[in-house]
C-alpha cells in the first residue's frame, strides 16, 4: 500500500532505552506535581491571607502560568534565569518550568474548590476552639483536596505531556529526549515516535485509572 517498509523491529529493539526514558519522564512529572501541590497550597493561603502583597504574588503567578505557553515558562526557567547568572541544568529547568505551571493551575483549581466549601464550615471549626490555621488544616483543606482531586489528576496528565518540552532546553534522558536521540541515530522517525506515543498513552491511562481507584478508596463520603 505504501512505498515504505516499516521497520518496527528496529524501534522495538530500543524499547529498554525508551522505558528508562519513561521513568525519567514519570520522575519529572511526579516531582513537579508534589512540589506544585505544596506551592499551590501556599499560594492559596497567600490569597486568603488578606495581605495585599502576598495575594498579588499569588495572582501574578497564577495569571502568568495560565496565560503564557508552557514552553515559554520553560524557556524562562532556562534562558531567562540564565541572564541573572543562574544557570540551571536541563533537568532543573524542565522541572522548574513544569512545577511553575502546575502550581499556577492548581492554585486556580483550589480557589474554585474553596468557593464550594461554605464559610459555615470554618465558623463551625472556629466555634469548637480551632484557630484560623487549625480550621483550615483539619476542616477546609481535606474537603478542598477532595474537590480538586479530579483536576489534580488532569494536571498530572498535563505534567507528563509537558515533559516532552524538555528537549528544547537540552534534556535528553526523558522519554521524548531519548526518542529524539535514537531518531538521530537510526532515522526511523515514525516507528520510534509511534512507540513513544504508545508509551505516553499507556502512562496517561494508568494515571487516570489509578486515580479513579485511589479516589474510590480515599473518598468514601
Amino acid at each position: 500500500m505504501f512505498n515504505y517498509t516499516f521497520q518496527w523491529k528496529q524501534a522495538l529493539a530500543r524499547l529498554p532505552q525508551m522505558l528508562d526514558g519513561a521513568i525519567v519522564t514519570m520522575q519529572i512529572a511526579i516531582l513537579s506535581m508534589a512540589i506544585g501541590i505544596l506551592l499551590a497550597v501556599v499560594l492559596t493561603m497567600f490569597r486568603l491571607s488578606g495581605n495585599r502583597a502576598l495575594s498579588a504574588i499569588a495572582k501574578t503567578w497564577v495569571e502568568i502560568a495560565r496565560n503564557t505557553p508552557a514552553l515559554f515558562q520553560i524557556y524562562m526557567a532556562h534562558f531567562g534565569l540564565g541572564s541573572f547568572g543562574i544557570h540551571l541544568s536541563p533537568f532543573a529547568s524542565i522541572l522548574l518550568g513544569i512545577t511553575f505551571n502546575n502550581a499556577g493551575y492548581l492554585t486556580e483549581n483550589f480557589r474554585g474548590a474553596l468557593k464550594a466549601i461554605p464559610d459555615t464550615q470554618t465558623r463551625a471549626g472556629r466555634s469548637l476552639g480551632f484557630g484560623a490555621a487549625g480550621a483550615f488544616r483539619y476542616i477546609v483543606l481535606p474537603q478542598m483536596l477532595r474537590i480538586s482531586f479530579l483536576p489534580m489528576t488532569n494536571q498530572m496528565v498535563w505534567a507528563i505531556l509537558m515533559t516532552s518540552l524538555g528537549v528544547t532546553v537540552g534534556m535528553n534522558s526523558d522519554l521524548y529526549g531519548v526518542t529524539q536521540d535514537l531518531n538521530a541515530l537510526t532515522f526511523r522517525t515514525f516507528e520510534l515516535f509511534a512507540v513513544a506515543a504508545v508509551i505516553f498513552y499507556l502512562i496517561t491511562k494508568v494515571i487516570t485509572l489509578g486515580a479513579r481507584l485511589v479516589a474510590s478508596r480515599l473518598f468514601r463520603y
Binding site: T120, A124, F130, Y221
Partner: peptide, 20 residues
C-alpha cells in the same frame, strides 16, 4: 478566643457537619 470558645458550645441552624 480559641481558649474561651472551648467553654462555650454553639450549635447552628445549619448543622455544619464536617462531611469528610
Amino acid at each position: 478566643l480559641n481558649k474561651l470558645r472551648r467553654k462555650i458550645g454553639i450549635v447552628f441552624q445549619q448543622f455544619n457537619a464536617f462531611p469528610h
